[in-house]
Design a binder for these strands. Structure first.
Length: 772
DNA sequence: GAGTTTGAAACT
DNA sequence: CAGTTTCAAACTC
């Protein structure tokens, strides 16, 4: 059985099979890895984009439904093909067999050419039957396959922005983070690293050759579908630009990291303009020391799709978004330091621990630059996977056991157990994450038995106890919905005979909670360095909304009664989410009725990119308000915090740039927000002060300081003191003492009581010091 | 919380 | 495409 039948190419959606772009752009032979300037044909008109600002996307400037293929290394003997979202399939292949040509103990790094052994192997692997014993070099392929409905399983995939976040492990346990921009479509200008940024549908492959510490990231033109073909020629057909990095250093073993991008992504939906120039491509942002080298290679370009001076001074309606500029695409790859590709072949690299690093890529031409911070500090046991079209982040919970020779979670070689690191995240974030997903309390995960897999189903050969991301090993329509529509908190139990591994698929919102609480119990390895990683990730600006805007607005539960939550009336359904903790009646928006949830149109984002000359964000259809003046949440434009555009059919619209009403509302809203922030800050400060006070006043007994514990003034002590004082008052009264004398007696008694309290405290302190 | 208003979605 | 109905959220009281 083949991993993917060759005919899958024929059913690839346009977003993937952007043959137009591909035709325009002849695949450069691998001999020109660093080739950069391929102008992709740019659509005259930009289609409405997905939900706005996508931070990171694999596919450049593609339409919201950009198809992305990611190939990452995984576990040895793992072969998995998994359809992740509409038209997206994850193909995970990996084998423990070392690449024959890469197998030398010392890494000879090779600047891999498309026809080079590495690529050839990769292709061979892909074409090879999808079996656990596949000789493939630890490869994980995320292959996007048809979303046109021809592939039954892919029909479910939501077309809203590609949200693909793939985490994998390099063999060396090095976290590799790939964040490919959504708008990354411009002909890449290879800079230094020689990354070819070609706008085309792509497969991204992160290849780790068997025992060789070679990690390759390849973007393979979808036209050159590797799957189903074993011909080495295809390798040559790849437009490949490779970044071969080798970390000179350690004895642990040579480490070569190659970034191969053979084809840029689909440029559909790209609003590339003549004035737009590619921004940064293949730039190495940071390089660290060889010892702990978090290396960040940013491959990305920020393309200005819109003139920024669109705001008209006239009173006419202008679709100018008052919001922040959407983020631009960024590809960030953490790698081990590499002195130079030329030296790569001779130096050795070590298994390196990548420190949590924030890769900040700032780019942009003609537009305000938008910074995207991609936190890389993910607990080694958590691998994040974001499924395109899905608004959930999925994480793989890995019980990594260092030292094991065969680590399913570790890519690359199995020959050197000592080099195996706990699971490190490799993240491919391909699209915006809708931050409006409800941050619900951690709930008990539901144990379900995964649907039976076909012969192509993944095979986990490891006998270790691991929790791993479940990935269909074949384009299994019946499994795909599970991946794309799994409700939050779903845990897929291992199938019978698959060992004692568990499969956990969790929305990202649970990750933080897991990190803070239960996750600790799930993770066996140390290295919880950055609980903020995922949180930070969640802070990535999405949909044009600031992190605070997105995170602070969890989705409200719906109250649908008649629509069965299967129509766009249902906000949950409209956002591609399962109903969770809703008040709906007769809800079908759940896993049990996933078949009924098929409604590709439903998931078409309402907010997308506008045409040239208009705001970058606008309603795809325009509103039709008549009475609200588009200044209430009835208006979808206003609700989305965007201004009405020319396509709106609203009457009496006041939601435009120069509208005084809108300005007033915005001003009020800002003022309210400021108040909220101030209140929050005040509360925080007060809480901090209280905490500090308690800390300082609490158990001073054990301390060497002279403070006495306030806890000595217990209720009983206070009552006794009061009794004493009252008694003095009564005594003065009985003796007909004047009030002044009575007060004096009371005060003296109070002083006496106080001295006794202090004395008792001091005595207790002394006793404690002696006894302790 | 009930009732009203509103506009998108669905339907014809 | 236009008009109508249905629906659920937003809003008001």
């Amino acid at each position: 059985m083949d991993v993917v039948s060759p005919d899958l190419n024929s059913i690839l959606p346009d977003e993937i099979m952007d043959t137009e772009a591909m035709a325009m752009e002849e695949d450069p032979p691998a001999e020109t890895p660093a080739q950069s300037s391929h102008s992709a044909p740019e659509p005259a008109q930009v289609p409405m984009e997905t939900e706005v600002p996508e931070i990171v996307s694999l596919c450049p400037a593609t339409t919201p439904m950009q198809k992305t293929e990611a190939l990452t290394t995984l576990t040895a003997t793992d072969s998995t093909l998994c359809s992740i979202s509409a038209g997206t399939q994850l193909v995970v292949t990996s084998s423990s067999s070392a690449g024959p040509k890469m197998a030398t103990g010392t890494s000879a790094v090779t600047t891999t050419q498309p026809s080079s052994p590495v690529v050839g192997q990769s292709i061979a692997k892909l074409s090879s039957p999808f079996t656990p014993t596949s000789p493939a070099n630890h490869q994980l392929i995320i292959n996007k396959v048809a979303a046109d409905g021809k592939s039954p399983g892919t029909a479910l995939l939501k077309q809203e922005g590609q949200k693909l976040l793939v985490t994998g492990l390099s063999k060396m346990g090095q976290p590799i983070v790939l964040a490919l921009p959504n708008t990354w479509s411009k002909p890449a200008t290879s800079q230094g690293t020689g990354v070819d940024m070609k706008p085309q549908p792509t497969q991204f492959k992160v290849v780790s050759a068997g025992t060789k510490p070679v990690i390759g990231v390849q973007a393979v033109s979808s036209a050159n579908q590797l799957l189903g073909s074993s011909s080495p020629l295809q390798a040559q057909q790849l437009k490949t630009v490779q970044i071969t990095k080798k970390t000179p250093v350690s004895t642990a073993g040579p480490m070569i990291t190659k970034l191969i991008i053979t084809k840029a992504l689909n440029n559909k939906g790209l609003t590339s303009q003549a004035t737009v120039t590619p921004m940064v491509t293949g730039r190495v942002l940071t390089q660290s020391t060889p010892v702990t080298p978090p290396r960040t290679i940013t491959i990305g370009e920020t393309i200005s799709t819109m003139p920024q001076s669109l705001s008209s001074s006239s009173g006419s309606k202008m679709a100018i978004s008052p919001l922040k500029s959407p983020s631009k695409q960024i590809l960030t790859v953490q790698q081990t330091p590499c002195t130079s590709p030329a030296k790569a072949g001779s130096s050795q690299s070590t298994a390196q621990t990548v420190k949590p690093v924030q890769a900040v890529a700032v780019g942009g031409v003609n537009t305000p630059q938008f910074k995207t911070i991609i936190p890389l500090a993910t607990p080694p046991n958590v691998q994040q996977i974001q499924v395109p079209g899905s608004r959930f982040h999925y994480v793989r919970l890995v019980t990594a056991t260092t030292g094991n020779t065969v680590q399913a979670v570790n890519t690359s070689t199995t020959t050197n157990p000592s080099t195996i690191q706990p699971a490190k995240p490799m993240v491919m974030n391909t699209a915006a994450v809708r931050m409006s997903v409800p941050i619900v309390p951690a709930q008990t995960v539901k144990q379900v038995v995964p649907k039976p897999m076909t012969s192509a189903a993944q095979v986990m050969s490891s006998s270790q106890t691991q929790q791993r991301l479940i990935m269909p090993a074949a384009p299994l329509p019946q499994i795909q919905p599970n991946l794309t529509n799994l409700p939050p908190g779903t845990v897929l139990a291992p199938a019978p005979g698959s060992g004692n591994m568990g499969y956990a698929v969790l929305p990202a919102q649970y990750v933080t909670q897991l990190q803070q609480s239960t996750f600790v119990t799930l993770a066996s390895s140390s290295g919880f360095s950055a609980p903020s990683s995922i949180q930070s990730q969640a802070r990535l600006p999405l949909n044009g909304l600031s992190p605070s805007e997105t995170t602070s607005r969890p989705r409200k539960p719906c109250n649908c009664t008649k629509s069965q939550c299967l129509k766009l009336y249902c906000d949950c359904f409209a956002n591609g989410e399962f109903c969770n903790n809703c008040n709906c009646v007769n809800c079908f928006n759940n896993l049990d009725h996933e078949g009924d949830r098929l409604n590709p149109v439903a998931f078409k984002p309402k907010i997308g990119k506008g045409k040239e000359g208009e705001s970058e964000r606008r309603h795809s259809k325009g509103c039709n308000c008549k009475k609200s003046g588009c200044l209430k949440n009835y208006c979808e434009c206003y609700e989305a915090k965007i201004m009405c555009s020319s396509i709106c059919k609203c009457v009496g619209c006041k939601n435009f740039e120069e509208s005084p009403e809108r300005k007033t509302l915005m001003h009020l809203a800002d003022a309210a927000e400021v108040r909220v922030q101030q209140q929050t800050a005040a509360k925080t400060k007060l809480s901090s002060q209280i905490s500090d006070l308690l800390t300082r006043t609490a158990p001073a007994i054990s301390s060497s300081g002279g403070k006495l514990p306030y806890t000595f003034v217990t209720k009983e002590v206070a009552e006794a003191t009061c009794d004493c004082l009252l008694e003095q008052a009564r005594k003065a009264e009985r003796c007909n003492q004047p009030q002044a004398m009575a007060e004096r007696l009371i005060l003296e008694e109070f002083g006496h009581c106080l001295r006794r309290i202090i004395s008792s405290a001091a005595k207790a302190k002394t006793d404690c010091s002696i006894n302790c």
